[in-house]
Design a protein around this nucleic acid. Structure first.
Lengths: 134, 134
DNA sequence: ATACATGCAAACACTTTGCAGCACA
DNA sequence: TGTGCTGCAAAGTGTTTGCATGTAT
């Protein structure tokens, strides 16, 4: 074995484990900062840089999903299912939305302009139920 | 007249005019920085703050469209038509995409969660034609 | 004349990076 | 035991804000 092995040695540090667990426990697309705060309860010395690095690592590896939010901090999510988000114009919070996922939009393949599409995100905007009530 | 007038006095400064003209001339969703550079050719003393303030003002007023880009500078566009964008994973640039606009997505109204949707943006991801060729 | 707009610089929010030391495999 | 990872601090990017001054109406 292993003349052609990529040899991507990856270490399971406490920090990395805690970051993953934090995202899993905070199912509500936490920001890096929220993850940082949760991890800090168990491991007070962790640095923000480590949280950022591990969130990026876990997202690249596919363990978690990075939701890039326009004009806001990135959110991290479980990779359970593809779904869309909405941003409340009033309070700025991000919510999952039950609108059915449009697989066909990622399967467009090549556009007229010659772009190869392989994924998409939809960000709905409006007013969330909390803000509606006020 | 004018006991109930909102009295939103708005001034047409050279700076504001130049910012609008710059967005109109740079039809390719310029960033604030690109607008700044163009305006500076005619009005070298303009400050970035003024460009930001005017882009925001013009967008709020509806003269131009703000396209919020995840993990990137906001882009500004003419308000001609609603369309989607794609972000090249390779070069990071933003392009218009010819995929038909889905009016029905903004007409969803209320979701199961009780959110009132009034607009949406779709960001496709993939590889642009320039990067494909390489 | 007045108050909206400007220019400047400092502050801000979020994220990345350089580097020396640490610890997992 | 070696190198991947960490913590720290500094830097980077994009944007906003406080304040004194300027200027369009």
């Amino acid at each position: 074995m292993s003349t052609t092995e990529a040899k991507t040695t990856t270490r399971n540090t406490i920090q990395r484990t805690l970051v993953l667990e934090a995202v899993q426990s905070l199912y509500n697309h936490p920001t890096s900062d929220q993850v940082y705060e949760v991890v800090r309860e168990k491991h007070p010395n962790i640095s923000r840089a480590t949280v950022y690095r591990n969130l990026g690592f876990l997202a690249d590896r596919g363990d978690i999903l990075r939701v890039e939010v326009p004009n806001g901090a990135d959110r991290f999510d479980l990779t359970n299912s593809l779904h869309y988000h909405m941003k409340c114009k009033h309070c700025g919070q991000i919510f999952d939305v039950s609108i059915p996922y449009k697989d066909e939009l990622s399967k467009i393949g090549q556009t007229d302009e010659g772009f190869l599409i392989d994924s998409h995100q939809i960000m709905f905007e409006g007013i969330c139920s909390c803000c509606c009530e006020k």
